[in-house]
Design a protein around this nucleic acid. Sequence first.
DNA 1: CTGAAAGCGCTTACAG
DNA 2: CTGAAAGCGCTTACAG
Lengths: 341, 341
Amino acid sequence: MKPSIVEVAQLAGVSTATVSYVLNGTKRVRPETARKVMDAVDKLQYQINPLARNFRKGESKLIGFVVCDLSNSFFQDIALGLEQCLNQYGYRPILIDSKEDKQIEMDNVRNLLGSSIDGLVIAPTTEDFTYLKLMLRNHNVPVVYVDRKTSGYESDVVLSENVEGGYQAVKSLIERGHREIAFIGSRRDSTMEERGEGYRKALREAGIPINENYIRYGDNMSVSQRNLLHGTIYNHTRELVKNYPITAIFTGNNLATVGAFNYLMEAGIKVPEHIAFITFDDSFWLSMTTPSLSAVAQHPEEMGRIAGKLVCERILATQRNIENPHQLIRVPTKLVLRRSC
Amino acid sequence: MKPSIVEVAQLAGVSTATVSYVLNGTKRVRPETARKVMDAVDKLQYQINPLARNFRKGESKLIGFVVCDLSNSFFQDIALGLEQCLNQYGYRPILIDSKEDKQIEMDNVRNLLGSSIDGLVIAPTTEDFTYLKLMLRNHNVPVVYVDRKTSGYESDVVLSENVEGGYQAVKSLIERGHREIAFIGSRRDSTMEERGEGYRKALREAGIPINENYIRYGDNMSVSQRNLLHGTIYNHTRELVKNYPITAIFTGNNLATVGAFNYLMEAGIKVPEHIAFITFDDSFWLSMTTPSLSAVAQHPEEMGRIAGKLVCERILATQRNIENPHQLIRVPTKLVLRRSC
DNA sequence: CTGAAAGCGCTTACAG
DNA sequence: CTGAAAGCGCTTACAG
């Protein structure tokens, strides 16, 4: 049987309070007493029972991370950064995939709240988070959103500089002389809209009329990337290339790139000679294609770290009853030019 | 203040025992009594305190997943399958990256054990797990290894059919007339050895002498995949191609592929005309290269699911004191031929 | 600097 | 079918 703090106290000839103080350093204890306690701890190989401590302190040191699409490397990288950051604060992430399904997301959040987490980081499926009001009614759990905007329940948010990133990408295409530029995004959400806004801004600034036919959105998300090879985006791209005189394509994220570039490859269209290409999201395999693909790099690990910092700081602030206004943090993007434009 | 089970009992006019029985369905209760309890629960919006319950039951419903390299999509996919499976058993994964560092792995395992997990899934960094004996001395925590063999602490293991997979890959190269075939693996570990063994087996069977110069291992793991573009494997490949009459390359995993194929691209070597190429690990981006790359597909999600099943079953078996001998499960691979050989 | 003791919110033998 | 009560292993005012 595992020894409890009582055994330690008996063996050391002190009270359980003293053992606790020594173990946690929560009160000054005479050196000799402390030594007696530590000896007993060693002798019994005592280890604190974390279940009891969590219960007593009313905390679990666990942060739920509910992700819209864990098969997407972008979100996996966010998870990586989050894990790293939480570690430093003494917290641990519980990872949950909601597969771009609002219902699964809600179930997961409810379930997670019912299993004692101290904080919640959400990469939202869709915008509406009114349901959190109800669910968090009886909980004191701070929330941080990452990657997409939300409504219905306000909290901290971490986003990329999507407008600016899209603007830079399209501007660089325009500078190369392109005027017939398509924007092909993944499923329509706040993030895609923002990148589209960057696209429009660059065109507007250059005095190029905006052709709404050149703007497309996919529907397929959280399907295996293998299935994106010939999905909606693939079809959009074919349709665009066949019916319009476009000379450049800007894709809204790594998922859209799979279908769009795959079409260009299969159709034998030379990039960048015939059609220039640039994408949002810099995945390492963009260096493995022919030609290598230019991209607006995001910093998902950094976003994860920031999200982690925000939850932890908010937990601390709540414990100490400190005012802590909600923050919206934008992480800058970076243009990475390769051979495709 | 959150209501406790006592408030519910008072409002319903029953004992806390009865409330507990109703809520958990652990004993038959008269329908009217049950209704009274449920009414009180609704009225107070009572939610069970999971911290208290965990403490009382001595379980956390948490499984630690300590992964050697979480930046590798292979392990991310294992995590995906694990999460899925655990869900069904009512468990949750805590995700930890040990970055191919034995020390970090040990620290994480110790730390995790000190924070109340019910089971442990480990994707090992290196083989030696003698340390687990010590750490698990006072814990009743089942362990499952995934992807690599271990020694020093026996438990369930989930592995790919590495020998057979390597054998199939190299056999298919031999069938295409290749005799000067190189094997370029990632860091040398049990898994790489097994794939190398498959390579040798195919050559032996075909009566082709084995040239040890054709067998190379990298050292670089858990570096960003971007850094693999020009790493050790890249250099090995260049050296091989420049100094030996090889006509085909078999890479040991997705990481090795990055450096090896990148060299071939940069050197302008035609694949498969000049050098045929096949790799272990089927990543989706193998369809995005020119030419698309053939691969021995593993099933990481399935491996994760199996690992999850094994821990959960072992937890159940332990609770019921059922004998449960350790298992070694091999997941079959599948040859996926594309344009590179 | 230290101890005696309450109490966190459950679950579960045990008795009726 | 139900209740009274012990007890899980800690932490922390409180008193000395």
